[in-house]
Amino acid sequence: MFDFDATLPLMALQFVLLTLVLNAVFYKPLTKAIDEREDYIRTGSTDAAERLAKAERLAKQYEQELAESRKQSQAIITAAQAEAQKIVAQQITEAQQEAQSQREQAQRELDQQKQEAMTSLEQQVEALSQQIFEKLLGSQLA
């Protein structure tokens, strides 16, 4: 059972050769493959993290711009509403003034015509009263 012979050194030599050969065909290529994969994953995840940060930054920026333009549009709407209000008020005032002036003019014309009518009426009254007077007294006078 314990008989040592040339098996021992030859087995050792064989084992060293196996180590060398496996180093060339097994350890080196697969270690390289694993390391490359780890590198790939590491760079991939770094890239992804960078892109995520960039995307978040862009989203934030867009949100800010959106909020700003919303504010601007709100301001524009407010301004337009104010302007419209002003125009409405102005036009209402103008219309009221025009109506006022038209009414005054009509009143004036009315007054004038009344005056004229009164005048002509007075003249007719005078003439009629003259006629009545002549008819009543003419026969007696005649």
């Binding site: 059972m1 314990f2 008989d3 040592f4 012979d5 021992l8 050194p9 087995m11 050792a12 084992f15």
Partner: peptide, 11 residues
């Protein structure tokens, strides 16, 4: 076999 194990141990 003792030869193999001794070879590995000596290595």
């Amino acid at each position: 076999d003792i030869n193999t194990t001794v070879a590995l141990a000596l290595l």
